[in-house]
Amino acid sequence: MPEMQMRVSDEDRERATGQLQRAFAEGRLTRPELEDRLELALTSKTYGDLLGLITDLPAEAPPADDVVELESKSGHVRRSGDWAVPRRLRVSSKYGSAELDLSQAVIPHPVVDLELDLTYGSAKIIVPEGAVVNVDAFHTEWGQTSVSDVPGRRRPGTLYVVVSGRAKYGGLRVRYPRRRWFTH
């Protein structure tokens, strides 16, 4: 995936080293494992390099100031095309639905946390080919959750989207982009 070959910043390296140090403090890594991974994290060049060091650890909580909120009382919330996806996105709508197409978006993070708060609307999420989506923390009272052929278990080197929240009278659909067939 192109996102995994994108070059990381010093801030990305610092975030990964913080996650490794927390894992060591929690007893998840031994001192030699920590030292090896810290050395690799500090010399990582791409997101794929960094993700390989932290994939087997619990995801870090994004900083509170790295949250984007999209709200609507009665309209629909839609994002598609070339848009920047934040690490954490909250979408809320009382009477409208949400449609988030990530398939052509710029996603520089290996993990995206998406929180939905929909009362009477539904949500549709389209993810790039190969992405993984975990919907275990999403609940609906009167609708259904439908995930079409998109795996839910985190895999190294792939975009991992975690969907949480609720839809009281609506549901959630997650899928890859539709394939277009061209005829000559």
Rank of each mutant, 00 (worst) to 15 (best):
74 S>I: 05
113 D>E: 10
104 Q>I: 01
79 R>V: 03
36 D>E: 14
123 A>E: 05
59 A>H: 06
74 S>V: 13
16 A>E: 00
16 A>V: 15
59 A>L: 14
95 Y>V: 00
21 Q>M: 08
72 S>Y: 05
108 P>N: 05
90 R>M: 08
120 Y>G: 00
108 P>L: 08
48 G>D: 02
68 V>N: 00
104 Q>A: 10
79 R>E: 08
73 K>F: 14
18 G>N: 10
37 R>V: 09
20 L>T: 05
59 A>V: 12
102 L>Y: 06
35 E>I: 08
16 A>Y: 05
107 I>Q: 07
54 I>W: 03
65 D>M: 03
58 P>M: 06
17 T>W: 01
40 L>N: 03
84 A>C: 00
86 P>N: 12
91 V>A: 05
40 L>V: 02
54 I>Y: 04
50 L>G: 04
114 L>Q: 05
83 W>T: 13
83 W>Q: 09
94 K>M: 06
69 E>F: 00
20 L>R: 07
57 L>H: 09
41 A>I: 08
66 D>A: 15
35 E>D: 15
35 E>R: 09
104 Q>N: 11
58 P>D: 08
33 E>D: 13
65 D>N: 15
80 S>M: 06
93 S>A: 13
124 K>Y: 07
54 I>R: 01
65 D>Y: 10
26 E>W: 10
21 Q>G: 01
114 L>R: 07
117 D>V: 00
97 S>K: 09
89 L>W: 01
116 L>M: 03
111 V>S: 01
100 L>H: 07
110 P>D: 13
118 L>C: 04
120 Y>W: 11
30 T>E: 11
69 E>M: 08
99 E>N: 10
57 L>T: 09
70 L>P: 11
111 V>D: 02
31 R>M: 14
48 G>P: 08
26 E>P: 01
20 L>V: 04
103 S>G: 05
51 L>D: 15
97 S>F: 01
92 S>R: 13
39 E>M: 07
76 H>S: 05
124 K>V: 15
80 S>W: 09
66 D>Y: 06
91 V>E: 04
60 E>M: 12
75 G>F: 09
29 L>R: 11
22 R>I: 12
70 L>F: 05
31 R>G: 00
49 D>C: 05
70 L>M: 15
13 R>W: 08
62 P>W: 04
113 D>M: 12
116 L>P: 08
64 A>C: 00
101 D>L: 07
124 K>W: 02
22 R>K: 15
86 P>M: 12
20 L>H: 07
61 A>H: 06
37 R>E: 07
107 I>C: 07
62 P>F: 03
64 A>G: 06
85 V>K: 03
55 T>W: 11
56 D>T: 13
92 S>T: 12
37 R>H: 06
83 W>K: 13
24 F>T: 13
75 G>Q: 13
37 R>T: 04
105 A>C: 05
88 R>V: 00
19 Q>M: 14
98 A>I: 03
71 E>F: 06
82 D>G: 00
110 P>K: 03
43 T>C: 02
99 E>I: 12
88 R>A: 10
92 S>H: 09
62 P>K: 03
123 A>K: 06
30 T>K: 09
120 Y>P: 02
83 W>N: 09
38 L>P: 09
26 E>T: 09
15 R>E: 15
51 L>G: 15
21 Q>P: 00
110 P>F: 02
98 A>F: 02
76 H>I: 10
103 S>T: 07
95 Y>S: 15
122 S>T: 10
114 L>W: 10
84 A>K: 12
127 V>R: 04
46 T>Q: 14
74 S>H: 05
39 E>C: 04
